[in-house]
Design a protein around this nucleic acid. Structure first.
Lengths: 237, 237
DNA sequence: CGATTTGTTGACTAATATCAAACTGTGTGG
DNA sequence: CCACACAGTTTGATATTAGTCAACAAATCG
């Protein structure tokens, strides 16, 4: 979407770091200085409650920016966890904000990324607030299917979701047992199958009917986002 | 937070418009061209499901930017409703994006606003996903208390929340009946009272203990956000 | 191979939704 | 001023959904 802004972006100093499955990438309450892009892997953002309960508030796949959401905050309020063997490219907030100021188009691209994230947050609130267990699961699995498809990691309606049922329960606001039983129901109904970490969408139509999934909120389609090219006003600077 | 950026912001052409209680400000699926700042009043953002269920995904009070979230999208995916007699100042996306490009500090201020919103979205997911009815209600009422306090609309732990119990239920993912009964329980426990549209936080300590409310995610404290002043790089342009 | 995590099951309990009816209060028109 | 409609709140009974507990099976890992 950008032009020679890309050059500027690529010229940034980036630290590449690898993480193992279940490794905590970032603790809560830490000063924020860098954010990352996922080269490969899968990352969860987790909010922990005083009573020990955990809510996963976002999943991130390869290509996603992680923690861009806190670029203008001083401290993190949630944890970042690698669910996979994951590689991140870290960039300092300072450098990124500097780019934002000098390349408005790039700045808007960063902004857009956080807005698309926020749209997903809103849909998750809807999912957890308005749908019951089976519908929630169907919706999440369709969302992840769509997102993996967008990065070429969907084959034959099958993708790798590196999450235990217990983690899925934390994302959907369900208990582990209920998560398990609802998954089995969906399996028996021929809607979807999860074997190990491999998810197969057996019957998209049924899943969509069940959950009311509509991928618009993911903003993967360029029709749904505005062109970011800088207005003339800036070219005259 | 900004300096003579303010002048630029204030120089924008703004359309002032008033709305009645329950008036729909913006329908879903409409092309986005403008966003607004609330001069006075109270606004909800509502997502509607195919089955008719509704989830309120955000509340906005005086001073909040409304729909800045969709400034880089072409169409809205949710409804805006005035819950009150509300006055909005509409600014065109074009003008705003132009300012973003020319005044990086201002641009970051806009970005920050959307990021703080997003942080609230995340906490709402936690609220709906992890807390039960009474706790959810306590959390929401504390949040709104804190936000009204920040704009000087909290007096004696009392504020005006122009929402019926049915609307509150839509925000919290509860049925109307359960909302009503849980509210009564909180009332009997001496935690809070809602008479008409007036909410009084009777026992903050109890409410906080119950819900685990921590206002950090609201980012009302300037300690928690970064200074936005433009880096030197831009001054040299 | 044992040890540990993850998945599965059944019995039971608690939370929440649904339904239907009644009971406010408030404003309107006669 | 009363009768009425209307929206919001409250109530009780009941059904459904989801959570908890405890045990066990299956898969995974060193």
């Amino acid at each position: 979407l950008s032009e020679e802004d890309c050059k500027a972006l690529l010229s940034l100093h980036a630290d590449v770091k690898s993480y193992q499955a279940d490794e905590i990438i970032l603790k809560a309450g830490v000063p924020t200085t860098h954010c990352a892009i996922i080269t490969s892997g899968f990352v969860s953002r987790v909010k922990q409650l005083a009573n020990g309960a955990r809510q996963i508030v976002a999943f991130h796949v390869a290509g996603d920016a992680v923690d861009l959401q806190s670029i203008l905050f001083t401290v993190t309020d949630h944890i970042l966890v690698a669910n996979n063997a994951t590689t991140l490219m870290w960039v300092s907030h300072e450098d990124l904000l500097d780019l934002h100021d000098r390349y408005p188009t790039l700045g808007k691209a960063l902004w857009l990324d956080t807005l698309a994230d926020a749209s997903i947050f809103r849909e998750w609130t809807v999912n957890v607030g308005q749908r019951r267990a089976r519908e929630r699961i169907a919706h999440l699995f369709l969302e992840m299917g769509t997102r993996f498809d967008a990065i070429g990691q969907l084959k034959d309606d099958t993708y790798e979701l590196p999450l235990s049922q217990s983690r899925l329960a934390e994302a959907l606001g369900l208990s582990l047992v209920h998560m398990n039983k609802s998954l089995q129901t969906l399996r028996k109904e021929g809607c979807l199958v999860m074997r190990g970490r491999s998810v197969t969408l057996k019957d998209r139509r049924k899943l969509i009917a069940l959950s009311g999934f509509d991928p618009g909120y993911l903003y993967l389609d360029s029709d749904r986002t505005k062109p970011l090219t800088t207005s003339k006003a800036v070219f005259t600077v």
